[in-house]
Structure formats: structure tokens, C-alpha cells
């Protein structure tokens, strides 16, 4: 992770970005765009969860709380104050950050992984139940609807950016920009001195502390950044979908989905959560007809990956390469010795 990117890796990133940017020009199929938009929302979510769990080693299970807080704050602020969603998504992300720091505080005191898991789960449940009980503000399970969409604007070369259910290109480019922003932020953070400190904290907390790593500051930092990004993704989700319910925006199912994505892609890698988000979102869409089996398959995927592919798909490449070289070895190496 700390090696500088090699030229072919830069090329790969550039090609991927160019392909993603060019896609709406080639196909205006709004279904394809919808699936990709969802993949990118979950890509941000899964990367931010991975930042806390995979890189910093704080195993939290309550990040859907920040998604819901982001989604509901942005929607409610935009509805009641009349501010533009372009502004409210950032306000919402900041509110999620504050919530993240708030739940980060009790976690500072505990080093036991199960306690962290239970506290974060409990926190997310409190958020979900509160949102669903405050019906006068959030309309509870009836759904908060009428969330204003992003305003259109005109770009010099690309023409008008529209944000309507029929024309998804605007949403597509916006979430692509947000995804690049969040991946860039996480990459910069991990490649900085703080990133080294986070990994040290994950691998040996006591040793890191004895070498002068400020655990409190780093835990709060990573929780804050992660909650900010998840809140941002949630805020975008609310304005994109247009209707929010507690079970869809803060339900435990959401967290399960994201955990599955990060695990499938590979925990503790930069590209893993993004790959996992894309793969699993597409799998969900392919299984749309088998709606009853969807979560069953998710459960099976999590079990299979944990049991047989503990480091996820991202490490499948090196694994296969090693297997191939291993298979080749007996035929080539004796020849050398002869």
C-alpha cells in the first residue's frame, strides 16, 4: 500500500476513470447508469467502512447509522430551509462527522473487539429507532418523500447537467466525482504519516502507543473521516432516490450488504471495497427476479468468502498467479538443474 504506484497502475487507474467518464456518452440506458450509480454510492460506503475496520482495525458494525444520519439530515435541511442540495449534502456530512466523533469517544476507552462491535451496533439501532419514532419530523416508516433533487446547471463543453429520474447522467457524474474525491482522500490519508500510524495501531496497539502514536487522536480522526464520507454517500442517496424510510436508509440489511462488499473485495485494501461494491451490486441486479433468495445468497457469500477466501477477491490475482507458477515449477526447474 505504501509503495509508489507503478506506471502500469497509473495507466490502469486512468483507463478505468476514462471508461467510467465516457460511459454515459456511449449508452444512455438509464438502467445501466442506475446500477453504476448504486455501485458507486456503495463503493464510497464500503471504502469508508474499510478505512475504519480494515486499515485502522476498529471493527465497527454500526456505520449504517452515519448513512441514515447523512440521508435524513440532508433531506430535512433541504426540505425545511430551502437550501440547495448542493450545500445540504456537505452540511449532512458534517452532522454525520459529529455523530461519528460522538460514538468514537466511548470506543476510545475499549480495546476489546466484541465490545466495539456491540456498542456500534447498539448505537445504529438507537439511530434507526429514533428516526422511525419521530414520525412528526421524519414520517417514520411511511417514508420521507418530496426530497428536492439537485438543481441543473450548464457546463461549457458538456452542455446542461440535468438531475431528473429520466436523465441520470448528471447524478452519474456527480457520484463519480464524489467517489474519486473519497478514494483520493482515503488514499492520501493512508499514504500519510497518519496512515502508517493507523496500520501500526491495528497490528499492535500497545507497541504503537509505546512508540508515540497518539491513539486517541488517530481513532477520532479515522472515525470522523469515515463518518463524513458515509454521511456524504447517504446524503447523495437521499436526493437521488427521492424517498427515505428508516429500514432502507438505516436498516441493518444495509450494513450487512456493505460488510459483504468489503469482505468479498478484500478487507484492508484500497481497491477491494470498490471491486466488491461493483460485483455485489451487479449480482443483486442479476438476482432481481429471485428477490426472496437475495439475502440468503448474501449470507452464503459472506460465509464462503470468510471460510475459503479470507482476503477477498482483490488477492485472488496473486493467489492464482502463484498457483500457476507453482504448477509450472516442476517442469521448468529440474530442466535448469540438468
Amino acid at each position: 500500500m505504501f509503495e509508489p504506484l507503478r506506471p502500469w497502475q497509473w495507466l490502469l487507474v486512468a483507463i478505468t476513470l476514462a471508461a467510467l467518464a465516457a460511459l454515459p456518452l456511449l449508452s444512455s440506458n438509464s438502467y445501466v447508469l442506475h446500477v453504476l450509480i448504486l455501485s458507486m454510492i456503495f463503493g464510497i460506503f464500503a471504502s469508508a467502512w474499510n478505512l475504519v475496520t480494515g486499515f485502522a482495525g476498529l471493527k465497527t458494525f454500526g456505520h449504517h447509522a452515519f448513512f441514515g444520519i447523512g440521508a435524513y439530515s440532508s433531506a430535512l435541511v433541504a426540505l425545511h430551509s430551502g437550501l440547495s442540495p448542493w450545500l445540504t449534502i456537505w452540511i449532512a456530512a458534517l452532522i454525520a462527522t459529529v455523530a461519528g466523533l460522538f460514538i468514537g469517544l466511548p470506543i476510545l476507552r475499549i480495546r476489546s473487539m466484541p465490545h466495539v462491535a456491540i456498542v456500534t451496533l447498539g448505537f445504529a439501532e438507537i439511530v434507526r429507532i429514533t428516526i422511525s419514532n419521530l414520525q412528526s419530523i421524519t414520517r417514520g416508516e411511511l417514508g420521507l418523500w418530496g426530497i428536492p433533487p439537485f438543481e441543473s446547471f450548464t457546463l461549457p463543453v458538456l452542455g446542461e447537467m440535468k438531475f431528473t429520474p429520466a436523465d441520470k447522467a448528471g447524478y452519474y457524474y456527480l457520484i463519480l466525482v464524489l467517489l474519486v474525491f473519497s478514494t483520493g482522500l482515503i488514499t492520501l490519508l493512508m499514504r500519510s504519516k497518519s496512515g502508517l500510524a493507523l496500520v501500526a495501531m491495528r497490528d499492535a496497539e500497545d507497541a504503537a502507543e509505546s512508540l508515540g502514536v497518539n491513539l486517541t487522536r488517530h481513532k477520532l480522526l479515522v472515525f470522523g473521516v469515515s463518518a463524513f464520507l458515509v454521511g456524504l454517500a447517504g446524503a447523495f442517496f437521499g436526493h437521488y432516490i427521492g424517498i427515505l424510510t428508516p429500514s432502507a436508509a438505516v436498516g441493518p440489511d444495509l450494513m450487512i450488504l456493505v460488510i459483504a462488499m468489503a469482505l468479498v473485495g478484500g478487507l484492508g485494501t484500497l481497491s477491494g471495497p470498490l471491486v466488491g461494491a461493483l460485483v455485489l451490486t451487479c449480482v443483486v441486479e442479476l438476482l432481481r427476479d429471485l428477490n426472496d433468495l437475495r439475502l440468503l445468497i448474501y449470507g452464503a457469500i459472506i460465509i464462503t468468502v470468510v471460510m475459503f477466501l479470507p482476503k477477498g477477491l482483490a488477492t485472488l490475482g496473486p493467489l492464482v498467479r502463484r498457483r500457476i507458477t507453482y504448477l509450472r515449477a516442476p517442469t521448468t526447474s529440474p530442466a535448469k538443474h540438468l
Binding site: K59, F61, M113, P114, A117, I256, I259, A260, L263, D292, L293, L295, L296, Y298, G299, A300, I301, I302, I303, V306, M307, P310
Partner: peptide
């Protein structure tokens, strides 16, 4: 099996999460 591997503290939590969803939806079916 997981207890015999490295990183079991997290992998056991993750696998029981998967089991939970799997069993829940098996019961639903």
C-alpha cells in the same frame, strides 16, 4: 476451522453475521 487461523477474532464475527442472515432467510423460505 476459523479458530485455527490468524485473525480469528474478526473472522468469527464475520462468519456468524453471514450465518445469521443465511439462517434467517432459510427460515423465511
Amino acid at each position: 476451522y476459523l479458530l485455527q487461523r490468524e485473525g480469528w477474532a474478526f473472522s468469527t464475527i464475520a462468519v456468524t453475521l453471514g450465518l445469521s442472515i443465511f439462517l434467517q432467510n432459510s427460515a423465511l423460505l
